[in-house]
Design a protein around this nucleic acid. Structure first.
Length: 295
DNA sequence: ACCCAGGCCCTTG
DNA sequence: CAAGGGCATGGG
């Protein structure tokens, strides 16, 4: 059941980690920077495991191994975190096959800058608008797609045109991030070689990025599987159930200060271990499901 | 019309 | 340190 290739596409693509995916004509299409990814379910016999067909434009052989992190030892990771407590046990049992995805670091960074104080459908909308306005049009399978713009393309974007994508007050965050990423004030591709703490210190220098968004970027695009993003849903859940489980005397309200974030993050990462990020994704997905959230 | 959203920044106490 | 207000925008 928990074999790594037995992936649950629905929960994986649709769990608030990677926003540029959409279902068209029974196939999922995703944008990975300049590449269009395609996933189609192959109908087998009812008792056979679901098989997916992977394609892309331009053609990238076996892209799914990279994007779905098939290089991780999924079974071992699940085995390790599932034993930590009965809350994570339930979360994993309910949604086996949920994977962390590996994203392009620039796309991921800009995506999560758009995520602050925002809802998921609107994050998608903004990113699609940005792609349409600044990316390249691609015709494939008689459909139109837009690539996610490169830093070079985004350097030419005016504040006015970005604002028109629906970014609101985040417009200046994007402008400043594009500037700092392209003149190498932050070399985002080097973050994966640094430790979690060093990489986090670096990414926090970007305007509009605090603890939570930094952890998302590190987890989803910089190989930091120990990163455990603490968002409003996780905080609610910490108060209701998780705080007693991880046995801490830290007291929190509905919002937490940077200092509290740091303490909580450390405590949680000690509890779930070096694959805390996987644990977070299972917990997050479950909390939202239990609350009947649409994506 | 209203409330809210995978937060962050800035100012005060 | 913690607490609180402001923020642009459109989905529900």
């Amino acid at each position: 059941m928990l074999h790594k290739y037995n992936i649950d596409i629905e929960s994986t693509l649709n769990s608030g980690q990677y926003f540029l995916w959409e279902l068209k004509n029974d196939s999922w299409y995703g944008i990975y920077e300049e590449t269009i990814l395609k996933i189609t379910e192959k109908k087998g016999r009812y008792d056979e495991p679901i098989i997916y067909e992977y394609d892309s434009f331009p053609e990238e052989k076996d892209w799914q191994k990279t994007v779905f992190r098939y290089d991780d030892d999924y079974e071992k990771i699940i085995d390790e975190i599932i034993k930590k407590d009965n809350i994570i046990y339930d979360a994993i049992i309910k949604h086996p096959g949920l994977h962390i995805m590996r994203q392009n670091p620039v796309q991921c960074t800009l995506s999560f800058i758009c995520s602050s104080n925002n809802n998921i459908p609107r994050i998608r909308l903004i990113l699609r608008n940005i792609s349409k306005k600044f990316g390249k049009k691609v015709l494939w399978n008689d459909m139109e797609f837009y690539t996610f713009p490169s830093l070079k393309e985004l350097c030419k974007a005016s504040p006015f045109d970005l604002q028109a994508c629906g970014l609101g007050y985040r417009t200046k965050f994007v402008i400043n991030a594009v500037r700092d990423l392209s003149n190498d004030k932050i070399n985002i591709d080097k973050l994966k070689e640094k430790s979690y703490d060093d990489a986090k210190r670096e990414i926090l220098k970007l305007d509009g990025i605090g603890d939570k968004i930094a952890d998302c970027i590190l987890l989803f695009s910089c190989e930091k599987l120990e990163a455990f993003p603490i968002d409003t849903w996780i905080i609610k859940f910490l108060n209701e159930r998780l705080l007693q489980t991880i046995q801490t005397d830290i007291k929190i309200k509905s919002k937490i200060t940077p200092n509290q974030y740091k303490k909580l993050s450390k405590k949680i990462r000690e509890h779930y271990g070096k694959y805390s990020g996987y644990a977070q994704q299972f917990l997050y997905y479950n909390i939202r499901k239990e609350n009947g959230r649409k994506w």
